[in-house]
Amino acid sequence: MKIAVASGKGGTGKTTVASSLFSVWPELAAAMDLDVEEPNLHIFLGPDPRRLRTVWLEVPELDEERCTYCGLCSELCQFKAISIFDGVGMTFPEMCHGCGGCFEICPADALKVKRREIGSIHGNQRFLMGRLRVGEAMSPPLIRAVRREAEQIFDPGMDIIMDAPPGVSCPAAAAVRDTDFILLVAEPTPFGCHDLKLAHQAFRPFGIPMGVAVNRAGIGDDSIYSYCSGTGLEIMAEIPFDRAAAEAYSSGQIVARFSEKMRSLFRVLADSIRRKVLQRQEG
């Protein structure tokens, strides 16, 4: 089973929860960090993982010897990555989304395939992460590449805990789709509640069961509790705010290993997530 740990708002504790769930998960599990812009899970799970490969996007390069300046490619390109104007052709590879349409449409075979590095995949048999190249804008293709890599590398029977990127737009959607459960980590503050609503709305069309882990319970207000009870979104865990645990997190420790209380809290959460997924798979 695949469990995505997500949130609308950043910094609510996704990585804290993902690393803790991974450390107490009752079955053999693998972990995946899909927050490729700012991956942090490896900080908690161990030393910097080995670089496995570079991920590229195919972008066009213009061969002006062959180009007839017919303009079909620039007319097709929706991302302003090719300009053909008045006998001058130029490509802007950093604008390219890698759709491949220009290669397909060129009648003169004047576009050669060049590659743009979008990032790299790192990891081992139990852990995978993507790391977006600094300056690269497009994270979804890298997120999808890491997920494809997991299908190759991880044992098929293994459960996978996935740390998703923050937000509710395309990177987050690419990370949580086709999973068996989405755990939304939320803070009990007006910001936390607002962004929880956004995430709940954004992910609902995927038809994946969702639950909430309230992190830093006890600070802030009651707004997320009323939202959850009003919409039937189940609160599956409340992780109390604990300054000592926050200090442990700050130095890279897994919170579930911080105290017996935290360990059993995450163990109960892991069990209830597994039970929900198994029930759904059987029913």
Binding site: T15, E38, N40, I43, V134, G135, Y249, S251, G252
Partner: peptide
């Protein structure tokens, strides 16, 4: 930023982005 290992890691990357632009 904040004094956590995660934030330090992320600060380094965002600072490189600033210098890139």
């Amino acid at each position: 930023t904040e004094p956590t290992q995660s934030a330090i890691h992320d600060l380094e990357r965002v600072a490189r982005l600033c210098s890139h632009f």
